[in-house]
């Protein structure tokens, strides 16, 4: 794939890859904008939700997904954890010179599929091709618009006794990416959990309207989002090692690598803090959803050290699970 000289023709070719993949009623390939009927949006709620995120991942294709699926699900999830129903996405792609058209077709296709599954339309976008080395294969930026059907405010009023739930196995995405990188030669590749969570979250909020906090546990893993929740609400969160769900393969992989799966990224996991009286309802509602079959209550909010996350270990001790400043550097002397 060359850029520059071939110029216009190549640009059109690339545009066509995306446009034909995203083909939908609202997408207007020859215009610089999508125009959305306000009345139809307003009928669904009284708040517009609006978010943007950029996606860089190495490798761009990995077991269980690729950067395209990630870019759709990630932005959909950012809307969903605010209690919004996602409606429209935009997509901007920065492409490194030399990336094959086939790869672009594959990624655009998986974006389109993810958007269709999520019930959102990719309604506008842009592509740029840059010199070799100016970016790493493909960077994607998606912006999402959604609407809050009813105002759900994640008020930072977590109270001691609140329950912490998570919708299944942790660390799959991070392990999948690491495994796919640097020839880790995994016997059975771990697949990314990349998924759009708005349906699951809608079900949760319907069953547990008192839900106090929702966070998708992406970069930095469960450990990081729980710390953010604890910090924001000046409470302590204590999770239980025995009920925190981690796949055996991920555990084994982390053991070899010396990594803590609590810090591995997820792309289809949400941590929810719910009041104790709604915990059972939340649990059953989430477990009834295909993306929440593995939901577990993993911990509680405590009246302890504000902003701290601890884990009760299998031995019965309590270990501090702190936010990492940098990478996982050994602290042992």
């Amino acid at each position: 794939l060359a850029h520059g000289g071939g110029g216009k023709a190549m640009k059109d070719l690339i545009d066509d890859v995306f446009v034909s993949a995203f083909d939908n009623g609202t997408l207007a390939p020859l215009e610089d904008q999508a125009r959305i009927d306000l009345a139809a949006v307003a009928a669904q709620g009284d708040r517009l939700a609006f978010t943007t995120d950029s996606f860089v991942v190495d490798p761009v294709v990995f077991p269980g997904g690729d950067i395209g699926k990630l870019a759709v699900c990630g932005t959909v999830n950012d809307l969903a954890v605010g209690g919004a129903r996602p409606l429209y996405l935009s997509c901007a792609a920065i492409i490194e010179e030399g990336v094959s058209l086939d790869l672009l077709r594959q990624i655009a296709g998986s974006m389109a599929e993810a958007a269709r599954d999520a019930g959102v339309g990719i309604v506008t976008g842009d592509t740029k091709v840059v010199h070799k080395g100016a970016c790493d294969k493909l960077f994607l930026t998606t912006t999402g618009v959604g609407v809050s059907g009813k105002v759900w405010n994640s008020a930072p009023s977590r109270r001691p006794g609140d329950m912490v739930l998570v919708n299944g196995l942790l660390g799959d995405h991070g392990a999948a990416i690491l495994g796919a990188r640097g020839d880790m030669a995994l016997e059975s590749p771990i697949e990314s959990d990349c998924a759009a969570l708005h349906g699951l979250i809608e079900a949760l909020l319907a069953a547990a309207p008192g839900t106090r906090a929702l966070r998708d546990a992406t970069r930095g893993g469960l450990a990081t989002v729980l710390n953010e929740i604890a910090d924001a609400s000046d409470t302590e969160i204590e999770i239980d090692e025995t009920t925190t769900p981690i796949r055996e393969e991920v555990k084994g992989f982390c053991e070899i690598l010396g990594l803590d799966p609590l810090y591995l990224a997820n792309e289809g996991k949400v941590a929810a803090v719910v009041p104790p009286e709604e915990a059972d309802a939340a649990l059953s509602a989430m477990q009834a959803h295909p993306l929440g079959a593995g939901t577990r209550i993993i911990g509680t909010v405590k009246d302890g050290e504000p902003g701290r996350v601890t884990m009760r270990t299998v031995f019965g001790g309590r270990r501090i699970v702190d936010m990492l400043v940098g990478e996982q550097l050994p602290r042992i002397c």
């Binding site: 640097g182 020839d183 880790m184 030669a185 995994l186 010396g258 550097l329 050994p330």
Partner: peptide, 15 residues
Amino acid sequence: GPTLDAMINNGVNAP
């Protein structure tokens, strides 16, 4: 195992 070698060779958590 190849994983251990890959860690050392690619500097994946092998400071």
